[in-house]
């Protein structure tokens, strides 16, 4: 168990700067997600931590030890790959024992190593398949084996590269829960790379949102969701409406013909962020902001409706109770509490 400290890490591939000065701190035992779209640098950063890529500048420290220049095998951390990367010529037990074998003496005799490996397999309920070959396992089973291999022998850091993305939706939810509980039980400092904001929000102690090789925003899931610092963060984390508004005086914004209050002062053209679930349709009770809108589409989601509306030429999405009368073409009013909206630079 150790903390991870990344200071001003830069990395270029040829002429392209992929990481443009990244700072991350993951406290010991925490679950930290690197979240972002593909190409944002999150996977490269993980590979730099693992030692699979050399950084151009900056430092990476694990448990206070500078590992920046160390070969991957000397960093004493473990990484789980999206493809699981189980060694096809070894059975499940040998796969899980492999890191112990490679790290050598500190893990004792062959028998001791096997006991540790079996223990790790027990943690993921795979001990009964210890003698199978990887190709005889299902995708979900392979993943559990890969997880067992990643946690065996107390790595200082557990690096997970989109480990859940190859699973179907149901299995994936189960694994999210199981992975977090395992991580908490073992107290493993975990760095988790994902492009899925739900996954990042639901599993992490801390989310690091990346964009174009820089950290866009870092914080707890709650902080990021409730108080996105930028339009990008607002859009990426959860379904948010970003309405283009112009200044209409102190804490007031003009949206088409309507004027609405804003939580903060601003000037010029900005985005006003309102979460879908904060909008009310034809119900302004206790709310200080209202605009007229026309329903353009209605999507039934079982427990609720998703409405797509047009307000002064801008598209707005809102969730409403199933009982709401909102056939396409219906004129409605949309209301919200200005304290739940945020003014964000464009």
């Amino acid at each position: 168990m150790a903390d991870l400290e990344i200071l001003d890490v830069r990395k270029t591939f040829g002429d392209i700067e992929v990481l443009k000065g990244i700072d991350v701190h993951a406290p010991s035992g925490s679950f930290v997600s690197l979240l972002g779209a593909s190409g944002c640098g999150k996977s490269t950063l993980l590979r730099c931590i693992a030692g699979l890529e050399a950084v151009n500048s900056g430092t990476i420290s694990v448990g206070g030890e500078d590992v920046t220049g160390l070969a991957p095998e000397k960093r004493r951390l473990s990484m789980m790959f999206q493809s699981y990367a189980l060694l096809p010529h070894m059975n499940v037990l040998e796969n899980v024992r492999f890191p112990l074998r490679m790290r050598g003496k500190q893990h004792g005799t062959k028998t001791a190593q096997r006991e540790l490996a079996v223990h790790a397999l027990e943690q993921v309920q795979m001990d009964h398949l210890a003698s199978r070959m990887p190709r005889q396992l299902s995708g979900g089973q392979q993943q559990r084996v890969a997880l067992a291999r990643a946690i065996v022998g107390d790595p200082r850091l557990l690096l997970l590269d989109e480990p859940l993305s190859n699973l179907d939706a149901r299995l994936r939810e189960d694994m999210q829960v199981e992975l977090v509980s395992l991580q908490k039980r073992l107290g493993l400092t975990t760095i988790f790379v994902t492009h899925d904001q739900d996954e990042a929000l639901s599993m992490s102690d801390q989310v690091i949102l990346m964009r174009g090789g820089v950290v866009e925003q870092a914080g707890t899931p709650e902080e990021l969701y409730a108080r996105p610092a930028t339009s990008f963060a607002a859009d990426f984390l959860g379904a948010a409406n970003l309405l283009s508004v112009t200044s209409d005086g102190v804490r007031r914004a003009r949206l088409g013909s309507a004027v609405v209050p804003t939580p903060t002062e601003f000037s010029g053209d900005v985005n006003l962020m309102i979460r879908q679930e904060d909008l009310k349709v034809n119900n302004a009770e206790g709310l200080d902001s209202t605009v007229p809108a026309v329903v353009t589409a209605r999507v039934f989601r079982g427990s609720e409706l998703l409405l797509v509306l047009d307000a002064a030429g801008q598209e707005i999405r809102a969730v409403a109770p199933v009982s709401t009368a909102a056939e396409p073409g219906t004129e409605v009013t949309l209301s919200w509490n200005s304290r739940q909206s945020r003014v964000l630079a464009k």
Binding site: L52, A71, P72, E73, R75, M102, R103
Partner: peptide
């Protein structure tokens, strides 16, 4: 698969041991 070799390196296999074992 190059990731097998990367995995083996992160699991503590040196260049030569990776060559030998993987």
């Amino acid at each position: 698969d190059v990731r097998l070799q990367e995995a083996s390196r992160t699991m503590g296999a040196s260049f030569l041991r990776n060559f030998w074992h993987v």
